[in-house]
Amino acid sequence: MRHAFPTVRTVLVAAALSIALPALSRAQAVDTTRLDVASRAAIERTINAARTAGLPVEPLRNKVIEGLSKGADGPLIAKVVEQLRGRIERAATALGRNTSTPDLVAAAAVLDLGVTDAQLRRVRTARPDDAVASALVGLAFLVQTGAQTDGAINVVCDMLIARVPDAEFDRFRESVARDVYAGASVTGAARTRAEAAILRVQRGGGRIDGIAPGAALP
């Protein structure tokens, strides 16, 4: 009888997976057959939990594929996928449930770099109703390049409040990378380049004197 329970459990899990995993496999062509049954079940539980919570499951599937392509074993893949689900859930709580998948992927990445939930909420406060993925990728770049997290958050939030567009964030990141490559400190480069980006946005309404054509008349 001691062997009966594992056998029954294995049969039940296998039956459940035979129903659940083909859907996963069809969606992403994920060949999970080399994973052990327990890991496959854990992964499926994680994905179902994410779906039930209204979180995107595509990043989790991508992580499974990544783990498989890198030859990781089943338990590690299951653990990494569960950790990613946790970060995505924290990101969704901080940024709001209607946040887009790219924003959540970027937010999960910056959480992994040590940015806190409260700091993430500051990013959402700075731009309440729009995409923040580019800003978060810029933030990740600053943090990973060595900037203090608080300072990096301030720079990024200043840019978000000034309505700096997404393309400017990419340009900002490239400029800071070049400055750092040339020997500048990441903090100084980030602040200077952020000011430049904000200045470019404000130039349209930032005339020296007055607002109307001809207002600069002496």
């Binding site: 992580k63 990544e66 783990g67 890198k70 990781a72 590690l76 653990k79 990494v80 950790q83 990613l84 990445a109 992994d112 770099l113 990728v137 990740a140 770049f141 943090v143 990973q144 990141r173 490239e174 990378a177």
Partner: peptide, 12 residues
């Protein structure tokens, strides 16, 4: 190069 680097969870 040029992109923010994040750990992948699998040691890379």
């Amino acid at each position: 190069p040029g992109l923010p680097v994040v750990p992948d969870g699998f040691g890379g």
